[in-house]
Amino acid sequence: MNIPHTVISTTPAQPVMPGVQRFVLCGAALALGILGLHFGKALLIPLALAALLAFALDPAVNWLQRRRLPRGLAVGLVMTFAMTGLLGAAAVATVQVGELGQELPTHRQNIQKKLRELRPALTPSGTTREVTRLMDMVAREVETTTRAFEPPGTAAPKVQQVAVETRSGSARTIDLVMTVGVQLATVALVLILAVIMLLQRAELRDRLLRLLGGDTPRMAAALTESGRRVSRYLTAQLMVNLGYGLPMALGLWCIGVPGAWLWGGLATVLRFVPYLGPALGAVFPLVLAFAVDPGWSMVLWTLGLIATLELVSNNVVEPLAYGGSTGVSPLAVLLSAAFWALLWGPVGLVLATPLTVCLVVMGRHLAPLRFLDVLFSSAPPRQAVSAPSYTPR
């Protein structure tokens, strides 16, 4: 009698696909990284701003070093020059703001007159008024029909009255002083960190390479190219913004808009904030031209000046100045601006392009991050994938 033998399979169970594991791990790491960026922004934003300032001032420091100045002296001279320029611009802005504050109340009647002139144009016409009334009637009928289907015991929710405690003037003053103190402390921290980064650039670079490990020549090439691209981009952006702000100040001065140099300087600074900054820089001179001129010629001239500068800057100056300095595609810049603005607000808009440049360069030199170069680089996909590897000399 043959006894059947039970065959026991010794084939090991099929593991989960490596691609799925890698996808899950990358997703978890990305989620943790975003949470860290969000909750650590109180520390990371000053650090990022200090790094950005160090990148912007490093070419000037290197230029002075090539003139045989010690690095410490070069850093001191560059920081002194930069701080003097900023304080001088702040002093001029303060004086012009004071003059505008004294002059604006005299134009109150002019503003009221223009608003009365605009009121007929803003009032809805007969057709628009009838359509609005019809929509209101339909909305009331829908609300009445909805209430008819409600159960009879349903009552309107009770409104709870909340007592609002008015704060005293001293409490508001303390809050204002605390807010200003925190902002000044943040600015001081950014300046101190920038000075340290400029003084110890080589040491910080070596420490970062040692911390990251891996292929040191590739990491060194990635860091060097990142710093060079970010510095070149910031220098080009400063030149473009000055090339926009100075003609704007001169044009507003010729037109007769009060505080022309204030609005030109403000437009220069606000253009460091992508997308939102140029719009804000154009609003202030237009509003002031509207308030000052009894007619409409100053408003039209100001609008024409701003439109001309925007067209020339966006279509001629910026393509020539930036060119291939960033190596980032326009879509990547837009997505990066949206992402960092959601995380860090307006400061994220300022840091979006430099951070994306660093990511693209890292992806170009490091194989695990090659997808960043493919997604964000301005080069064609085939060229981005087949980017030449770094060969140390």
Rank of each mutant, 00 (worst) to 15 (best):
M1Q: 11
V7Y: 06
I8K: 10
T10Q: 11
T11E: 08
T11I: 12
P12F: 02
P12H: 03
A13K: 08
M17F: 02
R22Q: 04
L30A: 15
F39T: 14
G40D: 06
K41D: 00
A42M: 04
L43E: 09
A50C: 12
A50R: 13
F55R: 12
P59F: 08
A60N: 10
V61E: 07
W63A: 15
G72S: 15
G72V: 06
L77M: 10
V78M: 13
M79P: 06
A82G: 07
A82P: 06
A90T: 10
V92Y: 00
A93K: 12
Q102L: 08
Q102C: 02
Q112A: 13
K113D: 03
K114R: 04
R116D: 15
E117K: 12
L122R: 12
E130Y: 00
V142S: 13
T144Q: 15
P151M: 10
P157K: 05
P157G: 07
K158R: 07
V159M: 10
V159Q: 13
Q161P: 02
A163I: 01
V164D: 09
E165S: 06
T166L: 09
T166R: 07
S170D: 11
A171N: 13
T173C: 09
I174G: 14
T179V: 03
L184P: 07
A185P: 07
L193A: 15
R201T: 14
R205W: 02
L208H: 02
L209N: 03
L212V: 15
A221P: 08
E225L: 09
Q237P: 04
M239P: 03
L242W: 03
G243P: 02
G245N: 08
M248G: 06
A249W: 00
A249V: 01
L252M: 01
L252F: 01
W253Q: 12
G256I: 04
G259R: 05
W261K: 04
L262S: 07
L266M: 13
L266R: 12
A267V: 03
T268K: 08
L286M: 09
V287T: 06
L288P: 06
L288A: 04
A289N: 00
F290T: 01
A291P: 00
T302K: 03
L303A: 14
G304P: 00
L305Q: 10
E310Y: 05
L311H: 13
E318V: 14
E318S: 10
L320T: 12
S329R: 14
L331K: 09
A338L: 11
A341R: 11
P346D: 13
L349V: 05
V350E: 15
V357R: 03
V361N: 09
M362Y: 13
R364V: 01
R364N: 12
H365A: 13
L372M: 05
L372W: 02
F376L: 02
F376M: 05
F376P: 04
P381A: 04
Q383W: 03
A387Y: 14
Y390N: 14
T391V: 07
